[in-house]
Nucleic acid binder design. Structure first.
Lengths: 241, 241
DNA sequence: CAGTGGTCTAGACCACTAT
DNA sequence: TAGTGGTCTAGACCACTGT
């Protein structure tokens, strides 16, 4: 699957930490030892350790070694661009996705602005509206806009499964980065109609601009959550100053 | 200040991007050229570019080069562990911090759990309560808990300025990483008393567990925001699968 | 094809931590 | 002092992009 040596080492060690083969609080073998174990150079080992550190698996300490962190304290960070399907599978939620509507619409001014397109641009986007049920309650309203120029064929069936899977595996597009913005807003009529909002007077809105490897923006997602069920967890490292 | 070559290169290029010396959509010089410009090796150049890429300055494209991204689209991500003072300075907000209370309290069960301490542990923590005014309105309630064993002396004066500055510069402690959690809750009486909540029936709560380089947890922060003023922006890259 | 970035190597020297 | 991670080097080969 992945052929890079440093990715292999990363995955191997990550697995050992998840297994409990190496426990929180213990030190990894030194970079020198890992170099021998994996028959590789030190820089390659260090690339793997850098990844582990960024993902919150380990903490590197100069002069001492790399200690394994207790990731159970961090319970599943949702950061780092993961799709709803990937997250909910990890959590083992009883979730269901219903496609409310899927249609091709003309780019209007507001969409052009969101896609940073020129006002003179024209074309169409897919507008996809989905509701996520968790434990039999309609909790999340997902509104997606995708440029039809990049995703020509989209069906309700694909939308019920994972968009990302289809885009990455079938279309071969490489999703690279995103800007996410979390705000709190007053529910729209659509929110009230489609979600089980109970008495809540606000919804949490996660707006994402998603970009491909070639820096073209191809997706805009607005994820509207019932506030009591919303939870965002992030693991962040402080940059050296 | 920073002596590492790759950090210097990173800062230099970052500055040129912020200046507009290199504009969004343009390509950086190739790694080969940068190596010559900075009289260094290619791996060192690559370390700098890796950082730029992680921070959202550039996008690397194999076979083509490194293109400068339009960061104005991302307007100031707040992720990556930056203190309130650092953020509000960047934004140029008219903000004011008021210390409501600062006292030393015994660790109770709930705090021990938050600090992942054994139930048999004992000791004290600083409990610091501050209100942040933005444009003359009380918008954010910050509740901090710091282990007194690590931060023996804390004064109201320090608390009004930046805690992090004091901790890093004065105490020489190295803040390394944090877990952040964003949820939405019903306001407490304290929230209602101290904040200008208007008619809002919910507050956004950002809870952070902050760790030092040696992996000891030393701070717990609960930042409670009036929902209409809350905004969290994040730039995330998708990990290769 | 030439030019670009991606991976990997073997080795050097430095800074920090322990004993 | 020995062992650890942090930085830097010079070079090799590969994969991808454009012409």
């Amino acid at each position: 699957m992945v052929k890079n040596k440093f990715q292999m080492i990363y995955e191997q060690i990550a697995k050992e930490i998840q297994n409990g083969t190496i426990k929180a609080g213990e030190f990894l073998p030194s970079e020198h030892e890992l170099r021998q174990q994996y028959h590789t150079s030190r820089e390659t080992v260090r690339k793997a350790l850098k990844l582990l550190s960024e993902q919150g698996y380990i903490q590197k300490m100069q002069g001492k070694g790399s200690i394994v962190l207790d990731m159970s304290k961090f319970n599943f960070p949702i950061s780092g661009l993961v799709s709803y399907k990937e997250v909910s599978e990890k959590l083992g939620h009883r979730s269901k996705t219903t496609v409310i509507s899927l249609r091709e619409i003309e780019l209007d001014s507001s969409l052009k602005a969101e896609f940073y397109l020129d006002e003179s641009a024209n074309g169409t986007v897919w507008e996809l509206v989905r509701v996520r049920d968790i434990d039999e309650e309609a909790i999340i309203l997902d509104k997606d806009y995708l440029l039809t120029s990049m995703v020509p064929d989209l069906t309700e069936e694909i939308s019920e499964n994972s968009l990302y899977e289809y885009i990455e595996s079938e279309l071969g597009l490489a999703i690279s980065f995103a800007k996410k913005e979390i705000t709190v807003e007053i529910p729209t009529k659509e929110d009230r109609t489609l979600l089980d909002l109970e008495d809540y007077s606000l919804v949490v809105v996660v707006k994402s601009h998603v970009y491909l490897e070639d820096t073209t923006q191809f997706q805009l997602t607005e994820s509207r959550h019932r506030p009591d069920k919303f939870r965002f967890v992030d693991f962040a490292r402080r940059r050296q100053r």
